Amino acid sequence: MDTEYRRQGDVIEFWRAVELFSPQQVPKVDKFDTLSRVEKATLHDRACPESNRPAGILR
């Protein structure tokens, strides 16, 4: 079973490397565009209203 996990890990590492060297295009945000919903976020903002844990701490 250990070799199967290692093989699966190698596959994941391969695709992460592919994504690292072929980044996706992200359109620029126009801060004056009133139709786009873009909000400023800080480190103290929560990801969603239901989140009851401090920001930045993973479970």
Rank of each mutant, 00 (worst) to 15 (best):
M1S: 15
D2M: 14
T3S: 12
T3P: 07
E4M: 10
E4T: 13
E4W: 15
E4C: 10
Y5F: 13
Y5E: 14
R6L: 04
R6C: 06
R6I: 13
R7D: 08
Q8N: 06
Q8R: 08
Q8G: 11
G9Q: 06
G9E: 07
D10W: 15
V11K: 11
I12D: 01
I12R: 14
I12W: 10
E13R: 07
E13W: 11
E13K: 07
F14V: 07
F14D: 07
F14P: 05
F14H: 09
W15H: 09
W15V: 15
R16A: 04
R16K: 14
R16M: 13
A17C: 12
A17Q: 15
A17G: 08
V18H: 07
V18A: 03
E19A: 13
E19L: 11
E19Q: 15
L20M: 10
F21Q: 02
F21N: 03
P23F: 02
Q24N: 12
Q25G: 08
Q25T: 13
Q25A: 12
P27I: 05
P27Y: 03
P27Q: 05
P27E: 00
P27R: 01
K28D: 04
D30C: 02
D30A: 00
K31Y: 14
K31E: 05
K31C: 10
D33I: 02
D33L: 01
T34W: 07
T34F: 04
T34D: 06
T34C: 06
T34Q: 02
L35P: 00
L35S: 03
S36N: 12
S36R: 13
R37T: 01
R37L: 01
R37D: 08
R37S: 04
V38A: 01
V38C: 01
K40F: 11
K40C: 03
K40S: 10
L43D: 07
L43F: 12
L43P: 04
L43S: 09
L43R: 06
H44F: 14
H44M: 10
H44Y: 15
H44P: 01
H44A: 12
D45A: 08
D45W: 06
R46I: 09
C48A: 09
C48L: 09
C48I: 12
P49L: 00
P49H: 04
E50P: 01
E50Y: 09
S51M: 13
S51V: 15
N52C: 05
N52S: 06
R53K: 08
R53I: 07
P54W: 13
P54H: 09
A55E: 11
A55S: 07
A55M: 03
G56T: 01
G56L: 02
G56C: 00
I57R: 01
I57P: 00
I57S: 00
L58F: 12
L58W: 13
L58H: 13
R59C: 07
R59M: 04
